[in-house]
Structure formats: C-alpha cells, structure tokens
Design a protein around this nucleic acid. Structure first.
Lengths: 366, 366
DNA sequence: TTGAAAGCGGTACCAC
DNA sequence: GTGGTACCGCTTTCAA
C-alpha cells in the first residue's frame, strides 16, 4: 500500500506502477506495452495491461517520459501576433507537418517585444524542444544579427535548432535554418504588371521603412521601374505600419497633395484594403479610376470587391518546409552522431502574381 | 569526472549538477537560487551560481521540474483551424492572459476531426496541463454531450479541467467550465435592426444546419420576426458551411429563383463577404439595392466596402475570461484541497450590434 | 545557511 | 518473456 494511495484525497494521478500492480505484471511490462517498444510481450500480458489502462483511463506522463529520454519531439512556433493571417498560415503549415509526423507543437506569442521573444526562446529551451521557429519580418540591424546568432548558438548547444521563417537570413556560419520566399521578385513582378498595363505614376506603400520585408518589396519595385526605364518618384513612396489605417491615411494624404497617380501598390493585402477604402471615400472607383495591388494573397484579397490582384506567398508551404527541414536535419544528426551536418541552411520559395480584378490600364489622360 | 562529461561528444546538455560543481556549491543551493524559492541563500553563493549560469547559458529542464512537482502551469488550446479569425482572437485572449500570469500555453489543431480531437485531449493530458480549452461551435447531439462529458471527467480525474469556449454547455453535473456569448440575442438584435429599417424579405444564411452556433443565430432571427409580427419565410433560409463560397452560392441561387429580398442576413462576416460579391456580380449595389449584415465583427468586417454592419462578439475577451476562470478555480482548488469547488460553471458574455454602412432602408417598391 | 538524499513517473538494460 | 532497478534532472524535506 503506497503512501499515495493511502492519502487518497489528493486526486493521486494514476501511474504506471498502479497499472502494473492492478494488472499483476511488472512496471517494465507495462512500459513495453505502452511505449510501442517492439520488445516481445505475450498477448496475455498485453491484453491485461490494455484492459487496466482503459479501466483506469491511464495516460503516460509526458514529462517523465521526456526525462527518461523518450519524449515526443516538439517544435516551438513563436509569433508576434496570432491574429495576423499570414503568420497564422505559416503556423498552420508547421503544425500540420508536425502532427503528421507525430510531433507536438507549441505556439507562443511575443507581441513584437524583444524581451518577450528572449523569454520565450529560453522558455522553449527549457521545454527541450527540437526546434524554435521564429516567424515574420524583422528589422535587419546589426543588433538583429547579433541577437539571432546568440539564439542560434544557444539553442544549438542545447541540442535544439533555430529556424527563421520569412526573416532575414543570418550572416556567417551560424547554426540556423532560414526559410524564405522570393520577396523582392514578387514585388518586381507586381510592379512590372502595373507598369506594363501602362501605369507610370504609382503610389507605393511598402510598409515600415526599417522592416526587412518592406525594404525587399520596395527594392523589387524600384528594380522594375529601372527595367522599364521609368523614373522613380520617391515622393510617391509612403512608409507606415502594416495595417489598414496606414493604407487609408497614406492614400488620403496623397490625394490631398496631388491626385497625380493612377495606381496604388500596397505592401500587403491589408494595406491595400485600407487604401481601397480611402479611394472610395474620395469618390474614386477601383479599378476604373485607380488600380490597386496587394501582397501576400491572404483570404482577404479575394473577399474584397473588386478582388485584389496580388502576389501569392506560399505561407503554409513555408511552414511545412520549415518543419521538414528540422525533421531531416534531426534524422541526419541522429545518423551522423557527433559530426554535425551543414549548419546554416537557406531555403527560398517562389512567389507569383495572382491576377484578379483590381488592375486596369490607366485612363487616358486628357 | 562524470560519465556524461567524459563522453563529451554527445552534446551533453548542461545540468544543475554541472552548475553546482562548477560553482563549488551543492545542487540544492543552485536549485534554491534558480527556482525562485524564498529560501535563504547567501549572497556569495547566489552570485557565484548566477555567474556560472550565465557562463554556461544554463536553463532548467522543464520536464524534470514538472516531474518534481514544480512545473509551470500550462493551458492547452485546441482549435479546429488556426486561420479562422474568430478562433485566433480567442486564442490570443487565452494566450495573453496566460502569459500575464506566467503560464505557458500550447496550441493544437484538430481540423474538425473527432479522432484528432480525442488524440489531442489525451496528448494534453499526458502533458499534465492545468486545463484544456476547446474552441468553437459544435454539433450539439447526444453524442457531443457524451463525448464532452467523458473528456471532462477524464481531465478532472487527472487533475486537469475542461473549458468550452463558444460551444454548447454541458448538461448535468459535469466538471467543465463554459464561456459563451449571447449568440441568440445578437442575432435577435441584428434581425431587429433590419426589420426596424423596414426590411421584410430577408435572405437568411445561418450557416451549417447542425451547428449549435448557426441554430442559435437562426433562433434569434426567428424570434425577432415574431416580435415584429412579420411572417417568417423558411424559403428564404439557406444553410451551408461558414465560408465565403457559401455566401456567394446562396445569394446567386436565391437571385436565380427570385430577387424578392431586400436584405441578406449572413451568419458570419465571411459569409457576408461572399454574399456581397455575389450581389455585385449580379449588378446589385450594396447597400442601395440590397442591405447586408454579418456576425462576429472580425477585422474583415471593417475592411469591406461598404463597411459591414455586424454583431460584435468579444472573442478575445472570452479567451481572457476562460483563462481567468481556470486560474481562479485552480487557486480555489489549492485552498480547498480535497473539497472541490462548484464544478460546472457557465459564463456568458454580451454581444451588440455595430452599425456601419451596409444597411439602408429598402427601396420603396413600386 | 548549506548539503545529502529521497522521490516525481518512465524507460531500458541486465538478469533470470 | 518477464521482472528488478539504475538512471533522467530537479525540488524539497531533513540533518548538520
């Protein structure tokens, strides 16, 4: 009679020992039956154990299991904001791929706060996760590189691994995997689409000036202008946060100063939605009077009227790829024992323009 | 010289023993310093330990900690689909409130699959979570009640707790907490808004016929019709899944049969978005020709043009409330030891109509 | 104030 | 095939 049982009232979780006792077998046998070990166990014993497990509604304690070195591999996903559609899709991709392999996934949010990000990374390290996946654009300063390098090494020595999705890759030989999409090319293609439709005066809303994503997109746009030998007017570029208020305000302000643009190239679909509203509020029609394009191709893009011509980014796929990379390297590591496989890895997925209804050639200027 | 250290190549995670050894103190002291125990420790020892911790970039192993009975409380959030805006907001609420208290949160997705839901609940039970939060509408059959009751009891005996958010409450004395919003009243108010604007022929798109959420919303609508003494035409009700394709198809079909309606009351904002597109595709203007309303008040509602008049549901707040309920009951349980506090709890939050631009009085019929 | 040692719940090696 | 038992890394009495 164990103390635990005697105490009684303390809703004593049922343990493997309880199961063993009740089934009249050893703890080892119960473990063998339940841990899926391919170790031989007689049908009699197996049956008896399973019966008791059902009776007692027993589940093994994951912590004990992990401690003993047989835990379920876990990925941690760190997001700024769960409610951002693009990030949610990446998370879905990671989660789906993880579940498929029987992995567990933890999601944590950082609210864009470096403090919390650090705390979260450490928290995940405590959990002994196989990898930490960091989502979303970042400000690519030296500080960022330093910070991420530190995360990477720290996770690496702890036997974990850092994965950056949709973030600037790390320079130098830092043990991290980056999964990215061809951000700049997407913007190039989108701008080209507008330029080849005849637009010359394009209001560009890239996003936050410091954000890597926005910089890449702006870069792509400029490259397209250069390719088309169209002078690029920096006066038609307005920066701001990735939300609809920014799109709205930027268009409103631009209209106030001049209406000398025939198209709006927004940094994200959400910004485009805001821009569209401002245009309408000013009595302009889309796309008859002004064309408009987005970026991301989140569901919103096809829910707007007119449906938004935008750049498709394979967010969910990126999540899947990220997880696959982690899983592969893990198997590799298991095989290669001490020797470490190529540490820095950089995967880039393609983007493409999705033509819908928000772009028309500009009206002939009288 | 411990075996681990000798082995070397196996990227031996640094343990509390390593820290103790290197700091020249006992394991117990290190634990006391790090676990935030208010147990007295000399400044000398504390300083030495902290230094080594920094040097070695040590973090405690959460599994070992949990096993020893001092783990971080964790909530598990189970969602059908992370990318559904409403659910994401609930999750955000739970997550935020959890982090605020220093709790950890796990997010799992079930993809609407009962099998996976069961697997997930068990998985979470293995993790020893303090509570499992199940999000989103469900089909309120007997089978559902049975299933949930089983979950509830199973979690309860394991020292955990079931929380249902936005789902039908459980009948009988089942140990579960339900956090809900006044779904039916929201629909009642929304329909009343339309009716008082003069609409009489309203196309109603409640959602999936079997889903509790849809049933509640339809119920509210019918009650409003009754209150206004307007005969309710069941022929103007079309069921379907909660997506924009359903909204589109339903409106398209309805227009095909008759254009004898002046407003569309959609079961969710997303359905409304689809409906709006179908209306436009048919050459109808919103709201001049046809009014339209949504439900949920997700960001999409205010991104559409015209901005959608809809029912605000305090999703994020629900998440926060859910977590608070769990935390409270946990403290209560700790105090009350064996005695269990009121087991079934049902919290209901209010909803209200948000008037925007998608409703106008119907055009005078000639 | 500090240290030694007994668990926490499993897993897996070693005997039988 | 089956059972005994030494860990896994940490917390927490209990003694010193």
């Amino acid at each position: 009679m164990s103390q635990r049982k005697a105490t009684g009232d303390a809703v004593g979780r049922v343990t493997i020992r309880d199961v063993a006792e009740r089934a009249g077998v050893s703890v080892a046998s119960v473990s063998r039956v339940l841990s899926g070990s391919n170790y031989p166990v007689s049908e009699t014993v197996r049956g008896r154990v399973m019966q008791v497990v059902r009776d007692l509604d027993y589940v093994t304690n994951a912590h004990a299991r992990s401690l003993a070195g047989a835990g379920t591999p876990t990925v941690a996903i760190l997001i700024n904001n769960v409610t951002a559609s693009a990030f949610a899709h990446i998370a879905k991709g990671v989660e789906g791929a993880a579940t498929l392999r029987g992995w567990l996934s933890l999601v944590g949010t950082t609210g864009d706060d470096p403090e919390r990000e650090l705390a979260m990374v450490n928290l995940m390290r405590q959990q002994g996760v196989a990898a930490v996946v960091l989502l979303g654009g970042a400000y690519d300063h030296d500080a960022y590189q330093l910070r991420m390098a530190r995360f990477a090494r720290s996770l690496d020595t702890a036997g974990s691994h850092l994965v950056l999705v949709g973030r600037p890759a790390l320079q130098g030989d830092v043990p991290a995997t980056t999964v990215d999409y061809d951000n700049e090319s997407g913007a190039y293609a989108m701008a080209s689409h507008l330029l080849s439709a005849g637009h010359r005066r394009i209001l560009v809303l890239p996003g936050p000036a410091e954000l890597s994503t926005a910089q890449g997109r702006l870069g792509g746009v400029r490259r397209a202008f250069a390719a088309y030998r169209v002078p690029f007017d920096r006066g038609l570029v307005r920066h701001g946060p990735y939300d609809d208020a920014y799109g709205y305000a930027a268009v409103e302000a631009a209209l106030h100063e001049t209406s000398d643009f025939t198209a709006v190239l927004a940094g994200t679909d959400i910004v485009a939605a805001g821009a569209m509203q401002a245009l309408r509020a000013a009595g302009l029609r889309v796309p008859e009077d002004v064309s408009i394009t987005g970026y991301d191709d989140i569901p919103l893009a096809s829910q707007l009227t007119p449906q938004l011509t935008t750049v498709h980014v394979p967010y969910e796929e990126m999540g899947r790829v990220a997880l696959r990379a982690v899983a592969d390297r893990r198997r590799g590591a298991a095989a290669a024992a001490g020797r470490r496989c190529s540490d820095a890895e950089h995967l880039v997925l393609g983007t493409h323009v999705v033509v819908r209804d928000s772009v028309r050639p500009p009206k002939r200027r009288r």
